[in-house]
Simulated assay, not measured.
Amino acid sequence: MNGDEQPGLDEIEQCFIAVLDGRMSRDEADRWAGRWVADDDLVWNDVARWGTEPSARDRPAQRSGRKLPA
């Protein structure tokens, strides 16, 4: 997550994994994603937009209903 270029799906996924692994807090992930969501000049596909919306971390991570840790 270099911070200078719009993140791709791989980078967004790495953010989710970092939260699950405990290497990044949900707050840090929300701040990271918020930076990108707030930039109106960026173009997102539907999956990338979903992954960068702060509420995405509150959605079930899998069909079992397991959510990302707080």
Rank of each mutant, 00 (worst) to 15 (best):
N45F: 09
R57T: 11
C15E: 01
D46W: 01
T52L: 14
I12V: 13
N45P: 15
V47K: 11
A70F: 15
W32K: 07
G51M: 13
R59H: 01
W50L: 12
D4F: 15
D27R: 09
P54M: 06
W32M: 09
I17V: 15
P7R: 05
I17L: 13
L42P: 00
R59E: 02
V19L: 04
G34T: 10
V43R: 07
R26N: 14
L68F: 14
D46H: 07
L42D: 01
A48I: 02
S64A: 07
C15D: 00
P54D: 06
I12C: 14
R66K: 11
Q14C: 01
V37T: 11
R66Y: 00
M1S: 05
A33F: 04
R63M: 08
M24S: 09
A61T: 06
A61E: 05
W32S: 02
D40E: 14
G65Q: 09
L20N: 04
R59T: 00
G22F: 06
A70E: 14
V47W: 03
S64P: 15
G22A: 06
E28M: 11
G3L: 08
A48K: 06
P60N: 05
D30T: 15
E11W: 05
S25W: 15
A38W: 07
P60R: 02
E13P: 09
D21Y: 07
V37Q: 03
D27T: 09
I17C: 07
Q14T: 04
M1K: 04
